[in-house]
Amino acid sequence: MAAGPYNYSYIFKYIIIGDMGVGKSCLLHQFTEKKFMADCPHTIGVEFGTRIIEVSGQKIKLQIWDTAGQERFRAVTRSYYRGAAGALMVYDITRRSTYNHLSSWLTDARNLTNPNTVIFLIGNKGDLDGQRDVTYEEAKQFADENGLLFLEASAKTGDNVEDVFLETAKKIYQNIQDGSLDLNAAESGVQHKPANRPGQTLQNDQQPKEGCSC
């Protein structure tokens, strides 16, 4: 029997953060639905999306928590950093203020997540190059200084959106492989599906490789 759409070896938890209106929900929507949501309403609190991807032959389910950027929700959204394996930190390349706030977001992310949480910096609205307010080089330097992965993306055209989520997953998977991410830690943001489930009768339909379990 073919592996069903729900067979996966890992679940990775992501969180998307950043100022209001930088396009966090649109990025998520573009990633999960492959569509651009033109008139996206402000997120209330926290919303949720999933998609299954494949990294190095492993099926991985991404569980993505999209937070509200509005300041009034900051207290609520902080509770969702706990146990995220990946944090996507988004700014808007056409609005300098959203870039300037990054350090505050980064502080939150660093303080509230694991040291191993992969933080990915995303300059969104890459399609509006004409209205650019933050240069690529500048943001790249910021990312390098802080040890972040970085890409400019566009939720509207879909440019790089896929890559952002996949690269993050690859990095997390790599961390698992080289043992720096401890799967046994509760809420490492990664859940590994055990290879042999009691009562499972479908043999050989997949053999999830036992992740590094140091």
Partner: peptide
């Protein structure tokens, strides 16, 4: 209950319990 009381399973990090080095939330 685990999230409330333990936060993290497994052996404590050998480096110590500084906020930046502990393994999980």
């Amino acid at each position: 209950i685990d999230a409330l009381t333990r936060g993290k399973h497994g052996p404590p990090s050998p480096i110590g319990d500084a906020p930046r080095t502990h393994g999980g939330p």
